[in-house]
Design a protein around this nucleic acid. Sequence first.
RNA 1: AACCCGGUGGUGUAAUCGGUAACACAGCAGAUUUUGGUUCUGCUUUUCCAGGUUCGAGUCCUGGCCGGGUUACCA
Length: 561
Amino acid sequence: MNDAAETHRDFVRQIVEDDLRTGKWDGRVQTRFPPEPNGYLHIGHAKSICLNFGIAKQYGGQCNLRFDDTNPEKEDTEYVESIMEDVRWLGFDWDDRLYYASDYFEQLYQWAEQLIQQGLAYVCSLPLEDIRTGRGTPAIPGVPSPYRQRSVKENLDLFRRMRGGEFPDGAHVLRARIDMAHAHMLLRDPIMYRIRHAEHHRTGSKWCIYPTYDYAHGQSDSIERITHSICTLEFENHRPLYDWYCQALGIHHPQQIEFNRLNLTYTMMSKRRLLELVKGGYVTGWDDPRIPTLRGLRRRGYTPEAIRAFCAYVGVTKHNATMDMGVLENHIREDLNRRAERRMAVLDPVKVVITNYPEGQSEQLPAVNNPEDASAGSRMVPFSRELWIEREDFMEDPPKKFFRLSPGREVRLRWAYFVMCTGVVKDADGRVTEIHCTYDPATKGGDAPDGRKVKATLHWVSVPHAVTAEVRLYDHLFRCEDPDEVSDPSLDWKSNLNPASLTLVQQARLEPALGTATVGSRFQFERLGYFCVDADSKPGQPVFNRTVTLKDTWAKEQSKG
RNA sequence: AACCCGGUGGUGUAAUCGGUAACACAGCAGAUUUUGGUUCUGCUUUUCCAGGUUCGAGUCCUGGCCGGGUUACCA
């Protein structure tokens, strides 16, 4: 988007370049994207994917895809499949480097025995609650577990029996022996293994003890010879532990680097909350176009190119930041403005009758497909005596700055003719049911040979040729920038869900060319926005999703009051 | 509270290691336009505070203040 982005190096890339220069990793750059398969990928993950795969590509390295699947109770192959699909859709490829932390369970186990042998790990038989209280508080040092001094022999025996399935869940854990008085709570003898008699989506019932994140992550990086282990800021606190395990084990020791995760206004990225919205029926599924999952965005009509450009734009730093949703929207507008063909569609139709156009007659008029791209060519659109136009494009008694159709005023119908409003027909309630106009045959195509100008150009659809469609108009998921901002403490973030996040238009009228559009194809509906064909479409009954509106300075003007 | 991290316009970032604070978006004004779109031009707005070092500090030092993360047998 700007030239600075071409030359600027964020702080992670600066580290990588420094390491390359000093030969720290023998010129290697090896990164990884390590999702836990317990949810669907969202745009926050896209930032991480772009960073990890992007750095690898830029510096001639590689990026692995690794599933961090150490918690059998939350994870599922459903998520594994979707994650792979979404990473590919975004435009990245891990070649043959698909890994799972669960593939390393045996090695991790052996290393745990090694730490026991070194006197750096022990089996603790305290109940969960006692472990927690024994850890103390930041102000009060923890007290050593009574099991802290168990002999290597006893620890080994118990740990092997833990693996052997002799104990119920929670009976014992394996803990690292570090420092119960450490100012850093995470270093007060953290848990390495817990007993869980649970079916793992990949290892089945082979294991009944599972490593914790802290015990598994650095070592998994180490096994894969990762050089730069890039993660989000909330893992900063875990780095001492990451380093401790690698050092204690004497194994390849990658550098963990933390960056700021992506936050967006009017939405929310928490996996837990996304799950709640899906399970609670607040949205229609993981691909609901209102949520920021990659599949939601895809169904909404976002392109991988726009998402990647956005991720490059947002920047990588160490402080928390919230991007305005408008910036994401600008990126899809920019992409689609270049690529999407234009069509005409009327969402809230009102009938126009061209009184001086012969009844029963119609004609085909050429229309440019994309003014930004001459190679997109043109198409023919049918014109006839009766047309649909947008109800809001007509006002009987217009304010000063309104320059669309009103009685006595002339406007242009896009690619067709100048028309002049000569009158209206209303129903008993005073609602306009028909607008009467005359057209000027000399203005065919939209230009007046006498050089006279009009202030507005309207989109329109010929009544007898129109295709009827359902159009889904999406708006922000939440009605305020920060979903957590609740006035009444008895309410939670869900009370901020936007009741108008979806508006259904059942009887939109489209130009006929839109009747055969294929699922996933994207168009600009002139003057309205970008739309894409939804998978719910049936032959003859297309369904369109609004990706984003066009910028609308008239709407802005109106909202000023 | 302790530990870790961070504070640059409204927002997001930059300033190549001490040398004139800049870019984008948003906002405002205007031009162009067969989309009130696109494009183009101009304008508004910035280094958390207080000391110190220095010819010179957004950058270094000290002390505050403010914000975030963490204090799980989740990741």
